[in-house]
Design a protein around this nucleic acid. Structure first.
Lengths: 151, 151
DNA sequence: ATAAGTTAGTTAGCTATGCTAACTATATCA
DNA sequence: TGATATAGTTAGCATAGCTAACTAACTTAT
């Protein structure tokens, strides 16, 4: 009943770095997500909408996979977004079973405002840092972005 | 009724750095949280337990504040943790209304395993990076940790 | 000392979000 | 054509968020 991973093949310093990066990411997002309440929609709806706005139209199955939820869950999330007129559903000409989910202008506007609210306070804090540290953060973000495609 | 912040006093480069840091943190945690399902408890319970394990015993109100939820919500989360024997409730000698919530040995074990599962794949990815980048990540984590106390 | 007010937690009842199982409708394949 | 597979929905369950209203215990003012 225990994780049967080889525990020894990861150097200690890598594990500690991972732990600190993980922990700081949690604490950062814990602070930033407070302002999401102002959006007026729930976290799952907001996150699904962000995928549609930043990655374009998706089918239900694609959106479910991107958000790591099962299709029935995404079905209800999309129903909520639709009720709020934040997305529009159209039919896929090539496949009558599938739906094409697209953010409406209202949805794009809501999402952009939510993103600005989130990033704004972080940006303010960052602007108080020395130039060197800002550059360091930019490089680190790039590395983390690359890592998150591997893990 | 609107946020009366001056929108212009944040330099563009700070906003862009914030955006990249924010985005990379989201993508990182989106990948890591998949393995939390193996813990057998829900995300809110897992997160509350991590506070108890890493910051020690807390009252219900303190735990609710740390997790940014209202007391009734935390009351139910703690009830779930208690049903699973992951926390123990004792009375506060100094204040008969308050409860002291403490992780049990089983709770500590579950939490540590969950943390290892999360961090392990990230650590593996990090161990493949050049030494220089690992160091850079460590410094960035420190800066982000500091920032998340300000934002 | 006791009545009034405050504070800590719980309970009830709503919504949102996660799941699996079972269904409908459409595509595809033998 | 009939069998099978795939896309999405519906039903029903659990968890997790909220507010309103409650109980119990502590504090304060008279």
């Amino acid at each position: 009943m225990q994780a049967h991973t080889k525990p020894v093949n990861i150097p200690k310093h890598a594990f500690e770095a991972a732990d600190r990066v993980h922990s700081s990411a949690i604490h950062l997002l814990r602070g930033l997500r407070i302002r999401d309440r102002e959006s007026g929609i729930g976290p799952a709806q907001l996150s699904a909408l962000s995928v549609l706005v930043f990655a374009g139209s998706k089918s239900l199955a694609e959106l479910a996979q991107a958000e790591q939820v099962k299709p029935p869950t995404m079905s209800r999330i999309v129903a909520g977004l639709r009720r709020a007129s934040l997305v529009r559903l159209t039919s896929n000409k090539a496949d009558g079973r599938a739906i094409v989910i697209t953010a409406t202008a209202k949805g794009v506007r809501l999402m952009q405002q939510a993103r600005v609210r989130r990033v704004e306070s972080l940006a303010r804090a960052i602007s108080a840092l020395p130039e060197l540290e800002v550059g360091l953060l930019g490089k680190a973000a790039e590395i983390i972005e690359k890592l998150s495609r591997t893990v």
